[in-house]
Design a protein around this nucleic acid. Structure first.
Lengths: 194, 194
DNA sequence: TCTTCACTAGAACGATCACTCTAGTAGAGC
DNA sequence: GCTCTACTAGAGTGATCGTTCTAGTGAAGA
C-alpha cells in the first residue's frame, strides 16, 4: 500500500473543493483516504499546510493538462478557451456545483494568512497564465498583449467558478467564454492584417 | 450605545475581508467591535450565519453605490467599468491586498455548505449584474446581450479580486477592466450603426 | 537471525470553536 | 417609585481542531 500518499492527496483535493481549507478537517481527510494520522504526518511532516500546498500543485498541473488537451483539438486559441469554459460549466452543472478546482477557494481563504499556500496558488495561476500567453503568442499575438489577455482569461475563469457555484447555474461561465473568444479573435484578426 | 449592532457588523465585514468566514471567530468580532457575546446574540439570534448574511448584504449595497457613483462621473459604461476595476486595483495595492470586498471569499468557502449564506451572496451578485445590465441597456444595448455582458463583468471582477490578492499585484484587475471596456465599446458601436 | 527503517495505528493534548445561560444594568412609560 | 423591556456582561458548555507521541508492524539487507 505505497499509494497512501496519493490517497491522502486525492482526498484532500476532493474535500476542499466543496468545503475549503478551514472547512476540511484532517480527520475528514484521513477518514475518506482510509489512512491514519500517523501516515499523514509521515508523508507531510509540515502538517496541513504542506499537504495542501502539494494538493494545489498537483491539481493545478492537472487542469493545465486538461486545457492543453482541449487546445490541441481546437483550431484557434479563442475556440480552445471557449471550449474550456463551456466544459467547466458542464462539469459543474453535472456534479451539483461541487466538482470544481479548489484552488480559487483556498486562495481566497488564506491569501492574507498563509504565505506558503499563497505562493503555491500564485505559482499555479502564473503557470496557467503563461500557458495561455504561449498559446496566443503562437498565433502571432504580441507577447505583451498576450500576457494582458491571458490575465483577463485567468481572472474570468476564477470568478466564473465562483459565480456559477454561487448562482447554481452554468451560464456565466459560458458567457465569459464566448466574450473572451470574441476578444481574442478580434485581436488576432487585427494583428494579422497590418 | 445603540450602534453596537453596527459596530459588530462592521467588525465582521473587516475581519472577513482577510480571514474569510471560518477563519474569523466570534471572539475576534466581539473584541474588535468592543462588544460582548450577549450583545451579539441579542442582535443576531441566528448566530454567526445570520450575522454574516447581514454583513454581506450591507457590503454588497455599499459596493453597488460605489459603482453608481463612478458611473455618474463617466461618460460611457465602458469607461465606468474600467474606472471601477482600476480603482479596485488601487485600493488593494494601497492596503496590502487586504481591503477588498469579502463576499467572493465567503461565497467560495460556503457555497456548498450554508444555503442561507449562499443565497445572500447570490442576491448581491445578481444585484450587481442587474445594475450593470441596466447601465448597458440605457446606452442602447439589447437586454439579452447586456445580461450576458454583465455576467462576464461580474465574473471578471470576482476573479480579478482573487487573482490580484494572490499575486499581490494590481495589474490583472486593470487589464481585465481595459478588456471589458474594449468589448463593451465595440458592442455599443456596432449597435448604434445598423 | 538480527537489525534497520519505512510506514501504520490511534490515544491523548491543549487550544479554540460557536453557542447557551444566568445575572445584571439602565432608561422609558405609567 | 415601580415595572417592563432592551441591552450588556461574561463564565461555562461540549465539540472539534491540528498536532504530538509512543507503540507496533513487516519486509529488506547484512
Amino acid at each position: 500500500m505505497a499509494d497512501t500518499r496519493q490517497r491522502i492527496l486525492t482526498a484532500a483535493t476532493d474535500l476542499m473543493r466543496s468545503r475549503g481549507y478551514r472547512g476540511t478537517g484532517l480527520k475528514d481527510i484521513t477518514t475518506t483516504a482510509v489512512a491514519t494520522t500517523g501516515s499523514l504526518y509521515h508523508f507531510f511532516p509540515g502538517g496541513k499546510e504542506e499537504l495542501v500546498c502539494a494538493a494545489i500543485r498537483v491539481d493545478g498541473a492537472a487542469h493545465e493538462a486538461l486545457f492543453l488537451d482541449l487546445a490541441g483539438q481546437a483550431s484557434t486559441p479563442g475556440e480552445a478557451i471557449a471550449a474550456f469554459f463551456s466544459q467547466a460549466a458542464d462539469i459543474l452543472e453535472a456534479t451539483d456545483y461541487v466538482d470544481l478546482c479548489p484552488i480559487g477557494t483556498i486562495a481566497g481563504e488564506i491569501a492574507s494568512t498563509s504565505p506558503q499556500i499563497r505562493v503555491a496558488c500564485d505559482d499555479v495561476f502564473a503557470g496557467w497564465q503563461r500557458m495561455i500567453t504561449t498559446e496566443l503568442a503562437e498565433y502571432g499575438l504580441d507577447v505583451g498583449d498576450a500576457t494582458e489577455l491571458s490575465a483577463t482569461v485567468v481572472a474570468a475563469l476564477l470568478g466564473g467558478f465562483l459565480f456559477v457555484r454561487t448562482r447554481r447555474c452554468g451560464t456565466p461561465l459560458r458567457d465569459a467564454g464566448h466574450h473572451l473568444r470574441e476578444l481574442i479573435d478580434h485581436r488576432l484578426a487585427s494583428t494579422r492584417s497590418p
